[in-house]
Design a protein around this nucleic acid. Structure first.
Lengths: 332, 332
DNA sequence: GTGAAAGCGCTAACAC
DNA sequence: GTGTTAGCGCTTTCAC
C-alpha cells in the first residue's frame, strides 16, 4: 500500500479510501491510485485489516466428518451462504473426538474467527459457556444441548423416526427392526424414540432385541442387517436411522439371497442424493440439508451482528419420501 | 498480552517468549506469566502474529464441489494432513466456474494463505503464472496443466480407463459403451482415451455412438444409460468414468427391467465407499483418494518451505477392483 | 535473563 | 478533498 501511495503520489490514507470507498476522493487521484494498484498488482492484506478492525471474515466449521454425504451437503449450504456474504470458512473435522474438537475450537479462537458452527458435535456445556464468556458467536447444528441458551438449527428427528415407522406400520408390518447409532446422543436417539412411539401408538409392543446399534456408516448397516437376519424370527421391515446404513443393510439382505422390498422393507433417513439411485431406490425421511446449512449460517451472521439478540431455536420438519424399498407386507 | 504482562509484572516481550519458548526465561517469571495467562484466559492472536511474521498457517483448498464423494474424500486427506502439520484449511467450492475460482483465488491471496491446493480445476495458464509471480505456492490435484511447471498430483487416468475396458474385453464383451464427462478436460478425457486404446489394442473398432457424455453426477449416468438402451443394438457393457454415474447407470438399467450384470456389465471409476455397498457391488477402478490428498498437502508444505525446489509431478497408479457388476458375456 | 522500541499493513480519528 | 498520526497484538532486534 505504501508503494501504491508513493507511485500514485498520494497519501497512504487516500489509497485506503479508494480501496474501501470510505470517503470521497477526487477523480484524478482515484485514477492514479487505481492505475498504480494494478501496475503493482496490489492486493490488500486482509490480516492487517482484520487486526486493525478487530473483526475477521472467517467462520469456523466443525463437523464430525466432512466426507459423510449428509455433513458434506450441509457444509455446502454453509460454504455457499458464507461466500455470498463475503465470509470464508475454515473446515475442521472432529471425528467425533472431544479433544480434537477442543483443539480446533482453540485454534479457531486464536485465528479470531467471527463465529463458529458446530455440526452434530457433542458440545459440552463448559465449552459453550467458555465460548459465551469469550463472546464468540456460535450456532449448533443437528444436535440439542440441554439447559444451554445457544442458537440451534436441527430437524425434528423424532417426527422423522415416527413417520418412517408409521409408514412401515401402514404397510402392515409388525416386526419392524431399527438400526440406531451413537448412544444417548440426540439425533439418533430421537429418531429411535419416534420409532418406538409409533410402534406403541399402534399397539405394537416394542422389542429391544429388534434394535441394533450402528454408527451411521455403510458397514455398520451391513453388519446390523446380518445380525437381524440371523434371528429366529427376522423382521419384515427395517428402519435404519440414516441412508448409508439403509444402503448397507440392503446390501447385506440382497447378498443373503433375500429381496428388498418383497421380503424385507427398508426405510432410511436423510434423503442423501444416493437415495434416489440406490437399487431399489430408497424410501426415506428427507431432511432439508442445504437449508439447514443456509439457515444456520444466516443465524450465525446475524448473531455476529448482534451478540445480544434473543436466542434462536429452529426445528425443521422432515418428510417421508416413498420410493421402492418398501412395500406391503406379504402374508404367508 | 499487554494485560498478561502487567498482571505477571514482566515485560511484554517476556510474555511472548514464554508463549513461544523463544528464549530462556527464569522459572519464577515463567510461572507468573503462565498463571496470569490462564487467569485471564489469554489466547494469542494469530492474526497479529502472522502479520508480524509475514506467514500464516492457513492453506486454501479449491474444489469443484466438496459434496461430491470423490472430492470429499480427497479433501479429508488434505484436512487431516494439514491439521497434523498445524495448518488450517479454508474451503472453497468453485462449481467448476472459472470466475468463482478467480474470486476465491483473490480472496485467498488477500487472506495471505501460505499456499493453495487446486483440485480438478481448469486452472488457466495465466492464473498459474500470476500465482507464480506473486510467489504463492500451489499444487494442482487431479488435472494436468500443459506447458506449465507446477507441482502436480494425479492418478493415471489413462491406465484406469484402459484397465476397466480391458476387464470388460476379457469377459468377452464387444459392444462396450462409455459414459464420459466434461469436455477435453483431462481427467475424463484420459479415461476415455484409455478406453479407446484398450478397444483398439484388442482389435475392436471404436464406435463414437457408444460414448455418451455425462457430468460426473448420478443423474447424468442415469440419463446416459437410457440413451444407450434405446439404441438398436444396445451395448452389453458400460464403462462409466466415475462411480456416481455407474450407479446412476445401474439404476436406469434395473428400472428398465434388465439385470446387471447378467444382461449388462457396468464398471465405474474412483472406488468411492458406496461402490462396495451398491447393488450389485460395483466393479471399479480404485484411485487412492486419501493418499492423493495427503501427498498433495505434503508437497504443498514442502513447497512453502522452499519455493525454489524442483517441480514435482506425481502420477499415482490405479487398480481394478472386481466386484459383482460385471460378468462374462452370455452369448445367445 | 530482561526490557524498550520499532514495525508488520492497515484504518480511523483528527487536523487542515 | 487530502494528509498525518496512532495503534490493532504480536515478534524481533538491540541494548543492558
Amino acid at each position: 500500500m505504501r508503494d501504491v501511495a508513493k507511485r500514485a503520489g498520494v497519501s497512504i490514507s487516500t489509497v485506503s479510501h479508494v480501496v474501501n470507498n470510505s470517503r470521497p476522493v477526487s477523480n484524478s487521484a482515484r485514477q492514479r491510485v487505481i492505475q498504480a494498484m494494478d501496475e503493482l498488482g496490489y492486493k490488500p492484506n486482509a490480516l492487517a485489516r482484520s487486526l486493525r478492525q478487530q473483526k475477521t471474515n472467517s467462520i469456523g466449521l466443525i463437523v464430525p466428518d466432512s466426507a459423510n454425504p449428509f455433513f458434506a451437503e450441509v457444509a455446502r449450504g454453509i460454504e455457499d451462504t458464507s461466500f455470498d456474504q463475503n465470509y470464508s470458512v475454515i473446515l475442521c473435522n472432529s471425528d467425533g473426538n472431544l479433544d480434537k474438537q477442543a483443539i480446533y475450537t482453540n485454534l479457531l479462537i486464536e485465528r479470531q474467527v467471527a463465529g463458529i458452527l458446530f455440526v452434530a458435535a457433542g458440545v459440552s456445556t463448559e465449552l459453550v459457556d467458555d465460548l459465551h464468556r469469550r463472546r464468540v458467536p456460535l450456532v449448533i447444528i443437528d444436535r440439542e444441548i440441554p439447559n444451554v441458551s445457544v442458537d440451534t438449527v436441527l430437524t425434528n428427528h423424532y417426527q422423522g423416526g415416527f413417520l418412517a415407522t408409521q409408514h412401515l406400520i401402514d404397510l402392515g408390518h409388525l416386526r419392524i427392526a431399527c438400526i440406531s447409532a451413537g448412544s444417548e446422543l440426540s439425533p439418533s436417539a430421537e429418531r429411535v424414540t419416534g420409532y418406538r412411539d409409533a410402534l406403541e401408538t399402534s399397539g405394537i409392543a416394542f422389542d429391544q432385541s429388534l434394535v441394533v446399534r450402528g454408527d451411521f456408516q455403510y458397514e455398520s448397516g451391513y453388519h446390523a442387517a446380518h445380525k437381524l437376519l440371523q434371528k429366529e424370527a427376522p423382521p419384515t421391515a427395517v428402519f435404519a436411522s440414516n441412508d448409508l446404513m439403509a444402503v448397507g443393510c440392503i446390501s447385506a439382505i440382497t447378498e443373503s439371497g433375500m429381496r428388498v422390498p418383497d421380503q424385507i422393507s427398508v426405510v432410511g433417513f436423510d434423503d442423501v442424493k444416493l437415495a434416489s439411485f440406490s437399487n431399489p431406490p430408497l424410501t426415506t425421511i428427507a431432511q432439508p440439508k442445504r437449508e439447514i446449512g443456509e439457515l444456520a449460517t444466516e443465524i450465525l451472521l446475524a448473531r455476529i451482528q448482534d451478540l445480544d439478540a434473543p436466542q434462536r431455536f429452529e426445528r425443521l420438519e422432515t418428510s417421508l419420501i416413498v420410493r421402492r424399498s418398501t412395500c406391503k407386507l406379504k402374508r404367508n
